[in-house]
Amino acid sequence: MTDTTIRPVAADRALLSRLRAWYSAETPNPAKRVQFNRPFTPWLFLLPQLAVVVIFFYWPSVQAVTSSFYIEDPFGFGATFVGMENYTDAVSSSQYAGTAFFTAFFCVVVTALSLGIGLLLAVKADKVIRGAATYKTLLISVYAIAPPVAGLIGMMFFDMHIGPLTDIAAFFGHDLRVGIDYWDTVFAVTIISVWKQIPYNFIFFLSGLQSVPVSVREAALIDAKSGWRRFMDVTLPLLAPTAFFLLVINITYAMFDTFPIFDVVVKDKPANNPITLVYKVYLDGFKGNDIGGSSAQSVILMVVVAALTVLQFRFLERRVHYG
């Protein structure tokens, strides 16, 4: 009985003194940790970021989830609760499976190509000594082009009537019809999207390469004669953190940020041309004014991306060694 009454008091006291210490910012070793002398100060600094996240992410997400269970009049006069019907309608539509398949395919191809070419160029640029700055600037400058502009430039090359690439294809006996033939359009959007993303990967890979210590390189040079083996066994593992980061970024790019490129290439009339899932969300929601259906699709997309991110971090990041 006595035991039980004393202990909490002692615990309270200890907690109280800790709180006081925390509040008055008396730390045993002030040099080691950054401490705020007011408990609200850190929250104050966090507030703008939190506000942005809440207003632009959580709040719309909650809205999207709610409206995905309703079929709604676009002007907001009435909403009928339909349960899962928006989800079943979306998934069972003939176009959805095709769009989902294309999105997955497009993500893999664009990520692989832009990472691969970015890495290759970075490795080669790392070795260039004369005119290195010019070479690098030229490669990086493409990154300054906004995606819609990249799409426009691309479509000048692929135009059915006046595009030079169409002429080149015709020379090799292929009638390139971007906008009509499904796979021709796939080809065009992939080329444009990869082209736009290579500089980004190039910058990161190049800085990653330049941070590989010279001593390690020299040691590797003694151990292995083959440049390919040195690259695979030493350079690549040291680049892994960069590569993992880029992988996540590139998948997000292919899934979401290529939107303006598609918009320009299909000239806002997709017909049977390939589109990504996020473009379909836009089409149904903003052009078709089907808010419920579009919300359901965006919730599905949200779940898929969340699952993908978890998978990446659980299975891939384990194999990444941060130096």
Binding site: Q95, I180, D181, Y182, K269, P270, A271, N272, N273, L283, D284, K287, G288, N289, D290
Partner: peptide, 19 residues
């Protein structure tokens, strides 16, 4: 209603007809 989407469906199928 939803006629813009019906047009989208038509456009898709027309491309498929001509190819």
């Amino acid at each position: 209603g939803f006629y813009p989407q019906i047009r989208t469906v038509m456009e898709r199928e027309f491309n498929r007809i001509f190819s």
